[in-house]
């Protein structure tokens, strides 16, 4: 994941799209995917390429949920808070998980081991409550089940 990011050439990403403002979000998405976050240097390169003012790009970066201006943890845990999951207790599951790894709210642990995000409906309502751990769906999770899965990742 994040480790391989160093090998990726940011200039190659920048050159994927024409230098127009409408490609700002495309570029930021590709950079986010490659590096797990958007560094100030990367944002400046994107602005130079697309001709978008830095203040505008910063507004975009902070408006949309999928962009992060700081590095994320090694393991990404997403707990779905869609309506079906909410009714089946996903709010408590998220709280219990965060408490167990020392987070007060969604975010990244100090040791950069975990990032916990709460996400809006993943559209997997038949599996409610659902969580996604490093891109793998965890159907019908419970607090103990999810905490166990997550702890195992950390110990690995």
């Amino acid at each position: 994941m994040a480790q391989t990011a160093i090998d990726i050439d940011i200039d190659e990403i920048i050159e994927r799209y024409p230098g127009k403002p409408e490609y700002l979000i495309f570029l930021m998405q590709d950079i986010q995917a490659a590096f797990n976050y958007i560094s100030p240097e990367a944002l400046t390169l994107v602005c130079d390429h697309t001709g978008v003012a830095e203040s505008q790009a910063y507004a975009v970066a902070t408006f949309y949920n999928s962009f992060s201006l700081e590095p994320k943890g090694e393991n990404l845990v997403q707990v779905c808070l869609g309506t079906a999951c909410h009714l089946k207790g996903s709010g408590l599951i998220a709280e219990n998980l965060m408490r167990s790894i020392g987070l007060d709210e969604p975010g990244t642990t100090e040791d950069l081991k975990y990032t916990v995000e709460t996400v809006n409906c993943l559209g997997a309502c038949a599996l409610a409550p659902v969580a996604v751990v490093n891109e793998a769906y965890q159907p019908k999770v419970s607090s103990p089940k999810l905490m166990k899965t997550v702890k195992k990742l950390g110990d690995a």
């Binding site: 127009k20 403002p21 409408e22 490609y23 700002l24 979000i25 495309f26 930021m28 998405q29 697309t50 978008v52 505008q56 507004a59 975009v60 408006f63 949309y64 949920n65 999928s66 962009f67 809006n120």
Partner: peptide, 23 residues
């Protein structure tokens, strides 16, 4: 265009701004 995580972009004028690369 892939969305970037904003429910309000389901609103038509907001969606168009997002396609333009804006907030």
């Amino acid at each position: 265009n892939r969305g970037a995580g904003a429910f309000v972009c389901g609103e038509e004028t907001a969606l168009m701004r997002s396609v333009e690369g804006k907030v």
